[in-house]
Design a protein around this nucleic acid. Structure first.
Lengths: 138, 138
DNA sequence: ATATTTGCAAACGTTTTGCATAGTG
DNA sequence: CACTATGCAAAACGTTTGCAAATAT
């Protein structure tokens, strides 16, 4: 997903491309993985920007409501990433880094069966593997 | 898992069977599914008990450290259940009810592959399906 | 008697809201 | 101009800790 198509998408929905919003989109496009709000703020500061937490919160809410971002709570902290292909994550229990992975297609089939069997209307799912990343295996 | 074997387990590790602790174990045995601390407190109140939040917090911490409970954060809230067979959950986006489900064994195989491919030491995983339960499909 | 468990009060981190101001189209 | 986006302050919420009192073995 590139930022220009996202900007277009935002404008189409009546949103404006402001400095903060544009930068958040770019940061998440570049990161290409789940990030907590605190990390996003840290990146903004590197770009010499220092928006209020509530602003970032509302930006992330806005972008999530407009289906540009996906929100996923990891161990109690809300994390966000660009909405695109569905995938899963490896979460390091030591350094909290999050790595994006692809998991084979069995899950989609199983999801249908589970929905039917339990008469449950499944909207989405989250699958995270917790453990220790390459750097933290000591 | 029955409460008596759990009590034995607790005593074996030097823990005492107090009113609050005993009741929490019984509540979770009976519920047989993930419950947030707030719901556990509500159940305790029905039993005419009204322990402090910090007490429940420390009980859940104690029971989790002693491998009697499993802790799982669902949408930002810590939830607990009796440690037994590994399974997954359906989470209702409307009423927040949590339903326990069994998912076929493909995941175990995939987990090994993922660990190897990413040189990631996987300790556990969590798989939750979000959607609408039977009562909330309106 | 001693170590464990509990209550109370308060800190903490993150998420969320209200209102006034600034900025965008 | 009208509406959107932002900053500030503070509330809300769940989690966590310190210390003193109560309780289980």
């Amino acid at each position: 997903m590139n930022k220009d198509s996202i900007y277009k998408n935002i404008r189409a929905q009546g949103g404006r491309i402001t400095k903060v919003r544009g930068e958040i989109v770019q940061i998440l496009c570049k990161a290409d993985c789940l990030m907590p709000q605190a990390d996003i703020l840290a990146c903004l500061k590197k770009q010499k920007m220092n928006p209020n937490r509530s602003t970032i919160f509302r930006e992330l809410l806005f972008l999530t409501k407009n289906n540009i971002l996906i929100k996923n709570n990891i161990s109690g902290v809300d994390c966000y990433e660009i909405q695109q292909d569905h995938h899963h994550h490896l979460v390091c229990l030591n350094c909290n880094s999050i790595i994006k992975i692809e998991v084979g297609g069995h899950l989609a089939k199983q999801e249908k069966q589970i929905a039917k069997r339990n008469k449950f209307d499944i909207i989405n799912h989250s699958l995270e593997f917790y453990g220790y990343c390459r750097n933290c295996q000591a």
